[in-house]
Design a protein around this nucleic acid. Sequence first.
DNA 1: TGCTTATATAAGCGTTTGGTTATATACTAT
DNA 2: ATAGTATATAACCAAACGCTTATATAAGCA
Lengths: 110, 110
Amino acid sequence: MLTYSNAEQILKAIGEETRLKIISYLTIDSFCVCELVELLQMSQPSISQHLRRLRQVEIILEERRGKWIFYSLNKEHELYTLVLHLTSMLPSKNENIQSFVVEGRRVLCD
Amino acid sequence: MLTYSNAEQILKAIGEETRLKIISYLTIDSFCVCELVELLQMSQPSISQHLRRLRQVEIILEERRGKWIFYSLNKEHELYTLVLHLTSMLPSKNENIQSFVVEGRRVLCD
DNA sequence: TGCTTATATAAGCGTTTGGTTATATACTAT
DNA sequence: ATAGTATATAACCAAACGCTTATATAAGCA
Protein backbone atom coordinates (compact mmCIF):
# COMPACT_ATOMS: atom_id res chain seq x y z
CA MET A 1 0.00 0.00 0.00
CA LEU A 2 1.30 3.44 -0.98
CA THR A 3 0.65 6.74 0.76
CA TYR A 4 -0.75 9.56 -1.35
CA SER A 5 2.41 11.56 -0.79
CA ASN A 6 4.54 8.63 -1.86
CA ALA A 7 2.48 8.10 -5.00
CA GLU A 8 2.86 11.80 -5.81
CA GLN A 9 6.64 11.59 -5.54
CA ILE A 10 6.84 8.53 -7.77
CA LEU A 11 4.48 9.91 -10.41
CA LYS A 12 6.38 13.21 -10.45
CA ALA A 13 9.57 11.24 -11.01
CA ILE A 14 8.04 9.25 -13.85
CA GLY A 15 5.99 12.05 -15.39
CA GLU A 16 8.60 13.85 -17.45
CA GLU A 17 9.32 13.24 -21.12
CA THR A 18 13.06 12.57 -20.86
CA ARG A 19 12.58 10.30 -17.86
CA LEU A 20 9.80 8.42 -19.64
CA LYS A 21 12.19 7.82 -22.52
CA ILE A 22 14.91 6.64 -20.14
CA ILE A 23 12.45 4.22 -18.54
CA SER A 24 11.39 3.04 -21.97
CA TYR A 25 15.00 2.27 -22.89
CA LEU A 26 15.49 0.46 -19.58
CA THR A 27 12.51 -1.82 -20.23
CA ILE A 28 14.61 -3.29 -23.05
CA ASP A 29 18.09 -3.39 -21.52
CA SER A 30 20.29 -1.74 -18.92
CA PHE A 31 22.43 1.20 -20.05
CA CYS A 32 25.23 3.31 -18.67
CA VAL A 33 25.02 7.08 -18.44
CA CYS A 34 27.14 7.82 -21.49
CA GLU A 35 24.99 5.53 -23.62
CA LEU A 36 21.84 7.29 -22.48
CA VAL A 37 23.50 10.63 -23.21
CA GLU A 38 24.03 9.47 -26.80
CA LEU A 39 20.66 7.80 -27.20
CA LEU A 40 18.75 10.80 -25.86
CA GLN A 41 21.06 13.45 -27.32
CA MET A 42 21.12 15.44 -24.12
CA SER A 43 23.91 16.80 -21.91
CA GLN A 44 25.53 14.48 -19.39
CA PRO A 45 24.56 16.58 -16.33
CA SER A 46 20.97 16.68 -17.48
CA ILE A 47 20.82 12.90 -17.90
CA SER A 48 22.56 12.39 -14.55
CA GLN A 49 20.00 14.61 -12.83
CA HIS A 50 17.11 12.74 -14.40
CA LEU A 51 18.64 9.43 -13.31
CA ARG A 52 18.95 10.79 -9.78
CA ARG A 53 15.22 11.62 -9.72
CA LEU A 54 14.40 8.08 -10.81
CA ARG A 55 16.91 6.58 -8.36
CA GLN A 56 15.47 8.56 -5.46
CA VAL A 57 12.09 6.85 -5.83
CA GLU A 58 13.84 3.53 -6.43
CA ILE A 59 12.27 2.99 -9.85
CA ILE A 60 15.77 2.30 -11.20
CA LEU A 61 18.86 0.65 -9.76
CA GLU A 62 22.51 1.46 -10.38
CA GLU A 63 25.40 -0.97 -10.67
CA ARG A 64 29.01 -0.08 -11.27
CA ARG A 65 30.91 -2.11 -13.89
CA GLY A 66 34.44 -0.89 -14.23
CA LYS A 67 34.36 2.80 -14.98
CA TRP A 68 30.74 2.73 -16.04
CA ILE A 69 27.60 2.86 -13.95
CA PHE A 70 24.77 0.88 -15.47
CA TYR A 71 21.17 1.63 -14.71
CA SER A 72 18.30 -0.85 -14.87
CA LEU A 73 14.63 -0.94 -13.97
CA ASN A 74 13.91 -2.12 -10.42
CA LYS A 75 11.73 -5.19 -10.96
CA GLU A 76 10.95 -5.31 -7.23
CA HIS A 77 9.37 -1.86 -7.23
CA GLU A 78 5.73 -1.73 -6.15
CA LEU A 79 4.88 0.12 -9.35
CA TYR A 80 7.02 -1.96 -11.72
CA THR A 81 4.01 -3.62 -13.35
CA LEU A 82 2.27 -0.28 -13.75
CA VAL A 83 5.39 1.19 -15.32
CA LEU A 84 5.55 -1.68 -17.82
CA HIS A 85 1.87 -1.21 -18.59
CA LEU A 86 2.51 2.48 -19.20
CA THR A 87 5.56 2.05 -21.43
CA SER A 88 3.68 -0.57 -23.48
CA MET A 89 1.45 2.32 -24.56
CA LEU A 90 4.41 4.42 -25.70
CA PRO A 91 6.47 4.15 -28.90
CA SER A 92 9.07 1.42 -28.42
CA LYS A 93 12.76 2.36 -28.31
CA ASN A 94 13.69 -0.98 -29.84
CA GLU A 95 14.67 0.37 -33.24
CA ASN A 96 16.82 3.12 -31.71
CA ILE A 97 18.68 0.50 -29.73
CA GLN A 98 19.07 -1.72 -32.78
CA SER A 99 20.78 0.97 -34.84
CA PHE A 100 22.84 1.91 -31.78
CA VAL A 101 24.10 -1.66 -31.55
CA VAL A 102 24.63 -2.00 -35.32
CA GLU A 103 26.72 1.16 -35.34
CA GLY A 104 28.91 -0.45 -32.68
CA ARG A 105 28.27 2.28 -30.15
CA ARG A 106 27.41 0.13 -27.15
CA VAL A 107 29.89 0.26 -24.29
CA LEU A 108 32.02 -2.85 -24.03
CA CYS A 109 32.96 -4.03 -20.57
CA ASP A 110 34.23 -7.26 -19.06
CA MET B 1 -0.74 4.67 -28.50
CA LEU B 2 0.35 7.74 -26.54
CA THR B 3 3.14 10.17 -27.37
CA TYR B 4 5.81 10.74 -24.74
CA SER B 5 4.72 14.35 -24.43
CA ASN B 6 1.12 13.32 -23.97
CA ALA B 7 2.05 10.77 -21.30
CA GLU B 8 4.03 13.47 -19.52
CA GLN B 9 1.06 15.82 -19.45
CA ILE B 10 -1.28 13.15 -18.11
CA LEU B 11 1.15 11.93 -15.44
CA LYS B 12 1.81 15.50 -14.34
CA ALA B 13 -1.93 16.00 -14.01
CA ILE B 14 -2.33 12.83 -11.96
CA GLY B 15 0.87 13.13 -9.94
CA GLU B 16 -0.18 15.54 -7.22
CA GLU B 17 -1.48 14.59 -3.79
CA THR B 18 -4.73 16.57 -3.86
CA ARG B 19 -5.53 15.41 -7.40
CA LEU B 20 -4.78 11.80 -6.47
CA LYS B 21 -7.28 12.13 -3.62
CA ILE B 22 -9.86 13.66 -5.96
CA ILE B 23 -9.37 10.77 -8.38
CA SER B 24 -9.64 8.31 -5.51
CA TYR B 25 -13.00 9.83 -4.48
CA LEU B 26 -14.20 9.71 -8.08
CA THR B 27 -13.44 6.00 -8.37
CA ILE B 28 -16.26 5.53 -5.85
CA ASP B 29 -18.83 8.08 -7.00
CA SER B 30 -19.19 11.38 -8.83
CA PHE B 31 -19.06 14.54 -6.75
CA CYS B 32 -19.72 18.23 -7.22
CA VAL B 33 -17.12 20.88 -6.45
CA CYS B 34 -18.57 21.95 -3.11
CA GLU B 35 -18.60 18.35 -1.90
CA LEU B 36 -14.93 17.92 -2.83
CA VAL B 37 -14.16 21.20 -1.07
CA GLU B 38 -15.66 19.74 2.11
CA LEU B 39 -14.18 16.27 1.71
CA LEU B 40 -10.69 17.57 1.03
CA GLN B 41 -10.92 20.56 3.37
CA MET B 42 -9.40 22.89 0.82
CA SER B 43 -10.41 26.25 -0.64
CA GLN B 44 -12.90 26.30 -3.51
CA PRO B 45 -10.52 28.01 -5.99
CA SER B 46 -7.82 25.50 -5.23
CA ILE B 47 -10.16 22.55 -5.83
CA SER B 48 -11.48 24.19 -9.01
CA GLN B 49 -7.96 24.63 -10.32
CA HIS B 50 -7.09 21.01 -9.59
CA LEU B 51 -10.26 19.89 -11.37
CA ARG B 52 -9.28 22.01 -14.36
CA ARG B 53 -5.90 20.24 -14.58
CA LEU B 54 -7.64 16.86 -14.56
CA ARG B 55 -10.27 18.03 -17.04
CA GLN B 56 -7.63 19.33 -19.45
CA VAL B 57 -6.17 15.84 -19.89
CA GLU B 58 -9.70 14.39 -20.02
CA ILE B 59 -9.17 12.09 -17.05
CA ILE B 60 -12.40 13.47 -15.59
CA LEU B 61 -15.69 14.64 -17.10
CA GLU B 62 -18.02 17.38 -15.93
CA GLU B 63 -21.79 17.40 -16.01
CA ARG B 64 -24.04 20.20 -14.80
CA ARG B 65 -27.04 19.21 -12.67
CA GLY B 66 -29.00 22.28 -11.65
CA LYS B 67 -26.67 24.69 -9.94
CA TRP B 68 -24.04 22.04 -9.33
CA ILE B 69 -21.36 20.70 -11.62
CA PHE B 70 -20.60 17.05 -10.99
CA TYR B 71 -17.28 15.50 -11.87
CA SER B 72 -16.71 11.84 -12.67
CA LEU B 73 -13.88 9.67 -13.94
CA ASN B 74 -13.74 9.29 -17.72
CA LYS B 75 -14.09 5.56 -18.23
CA GLU B 76 -13.20 5.98 -21.92
CA HIS B 77 -9.78 7.45 -21.17
CA GLU B 78 -6.82 5.49 -22.52
CA LEU B 79 -5.30 5.42 -19.04
CA TYR B 80 -8.50 4.67 -17.12
CA THR B 81 -7.43 1.11 -16.29
CA LEU B 82 -4.01 2.29 -15.21
CA VAL B 83 -5.62 4.94 -12.99
CA LEU B 84 -7.80 2.30 -11.33
CA HIS B 85 -4.78 0.08 -10.83
CA LEU B 86 -2.98 2.97 -9.20
CA THR B 87 -5.80 4.02 -6.88
CA SER B 88 -6.24 0.40 -5.80
CA MET B 89 -2.81 0.75 -4.22
CA LEU B 90 -3.82 3.86 -2.28
CA PRO B 91 -5.87 4.12 0.94
CA SER B 92 -9.57 3.95 0.01
CA LYS B 93 -11.75 7.02 0.52
CA ASN B 94 -14.75 4.78 1.18
CA GLU B 95 -14.95 5.49 4.89
CA ASN B 96 -14.70 9.24 4.39
CA ILE B 97 -17.59 9.07 1.97
CA GLN B 98 -19.61 6.89 4.34
CA SER B 99 -19.41 9.37 7.21
CA PHE B 100 -20.06 12.18 4.76
CA VAL B 101 -23.28 10.47 3.70
CA VAL B 102 -24.28 9.55 7.28
CA GLU B 103 -23.84 13.17 8.36
CA GLY B 104 -26.27 14.12 5.61
CA ARG B 105 -23.79 16.37 3.84
CA ARG B 106 -24.21 15.07 0.32
CA VAL B 107 -25.74 17.51 -2.13
CA LEU B 108 -29.31 16.62 -2.96
CA CYS B 109 -30.48 17.04 -6.52
CA ASP B 110 -33.04 15.03 -8.36
C1' DT C 1 -35.51 42.33 -11.13
C1' DG C 2 -32.21 41.58 -7.54
C1' DC C 3 -30.15 38.21 -4.01
C1' DT C 4 -27.91 33.95 -3.03
C1' DT C 5 -25.34 29.91 -4.10
C1' DA C 6 -22.01 27.33 -7.01
C1' DT C 7 -18.18 27.47 -9.83
C1' DA C 8 -14.48 29.46 -12.70
C1' DT C 9 -10.90 32.57 -13.58
C1' DA C 10 -7.26 36.14 -12.76
C1' DA C 11 -3.43 38.19 -10.43
C1' DG C 12 0.21 37.83 -7.15
C1' DC C 13 3.79 35.20 -4.83
C1' DG C 14 6.94 31.76 -2.94
C1' DT C 15 8.53 27.02 -4.33
C1' DT C 16 9.80 23.47 -7.54
C1' DT C 17 11.50 22.05 -11.92
C1' DG C 18 14.79 21.26 -15.69
C1' DG C 19 18.12 23.18 -18.33
C1' DT C 20 22.92 25.33 -18.47
C1' DT C 21 27.97 25.88 -17.14
C1' DA C 22 31.49 24.86 -13.92
C1' DT C 23 33.51 21.81 -10.81
C1' DA C 24 34.19 17.62 -7.93
C1' DT C 25 34.64 12.67 -7.50
C1' DA C 26 35.85 7.94 -8.95
C1' DC C 27 37.82 4.53 -11.64
C1' DT C 28 41.39 3.03 -15.39
C1' DA C 29 45.60 2.91 -17.48
C1' DT C 30 50.15 4.49 -18.30
C1' DA D 1 51.76 9.85 -9.24
C1' DT D 2 49.50 11.52 -13.52
C1' DA D 3 46.31 11.81 -17.24
C1' DG D 4 42.04 10.61 -19.21
C1' DT D 5 37.33 9.01 -19.03
C1' DA D 6 32.79 8.50 -16.65
C1' DT D 7 29.67 10.26 -13.53
C1' DA D 8 27.80 13.31 -9.88
C1' DT D 9 26.94 17.59 -7.88
C1' DA D 10 26.53 22.72 -7.33
C1' DA D 11 25.11 27.24 -8.63
C1' DC D 12 22.35 29.88 -11.52
C1' DC D 13 18.10 31.09 -14.08
C1' DA D 14 13.69 31.07 -16.54
C1' DA D 15 9.42 28.62 -16.59
C1' DA D 16 5.84 25.95 -14.36
C1' DC D 17 3.33 24.93 -10.11
C1' DG D 18 -0.02 25.49 -6.28
C1' DC D 19 -1.67 28.35 -3.02
C1' DT D 20 -4.04 32.79 -1.72
C1' DT D 21 -7.27 36.77 -2.38
C1' DA D 22 -10.29 39.12 -5.37
C1' DT D 23 -13.49 39.05 -8.94
C1' DA D 24 -16.40 37.18 -12.82
C1' DT D 25 -19.90 34.07 -14.50
C1' DA D 26 -23.96 31.17 -14.22
C1' DA D 27 -28.02 29.09 -12.27
C1' DG D 28 -32.00 29.14 -8.84
C1' DC D 29 -35.32 31.62 -6.40
C1' DA D 30 -37.97 35.44 -3.84
